[in-house]
Amino acid sequence: MTKVTMTVNGASVSGEAAGNTLLVEFLREELRLTGTHVGCDTSQCGACSVHVDGKLVKSCTMFAAEADGTDVITIEGEAAEDGTLSTVQQAFQDHHGLQCGFCTPGMVMAATALLKENPKPSEAEVRHYLEGNICRCTGYHNIVKSIMAASGQNVEPMAAE
């Protein structure tokens, strides 16, 4: 076991991690931040997506020890302290961007990363960016619509909910 220290959602945290402890295990089991989900555990689905030093990563495919000294943001860090949802989260609520909600933490983290890189993406760019995030429920349409809305673009012309 080695001691790992990182900033998670703005707070400095430390814990013990074995060499093979994944970042997602550290977040969920050590820090009890269970908003980050494990869908596939094989790097395919993106449910475990978090930001490490501002970059979108699959936390099931990175070791906790590799995140030592980094700045990690999880879905729990997206809303304001008083519970006010982030723009992306609010747009998912307003536009029915989720059904069961299992993929949603990863979708929100991916969407937030996208809008930081590309504040006004086209629909095609949104779909392309979400290649690593799988949703079994929605058919993606309202997820894409939510992200377009969060970017401040008019989503009226997109098909009905």
Binding site: S43, G46, S49, K55, L56, V57, K58, T61, M62, A110, A113, L114, Y129, E131, G132, N133
Partner: peptide
Amino acid sequence: IGDPAVRNR
């Protein structure tokens, strides 16, 4: 290559 998260690592 892959998707954005794969490309970041």
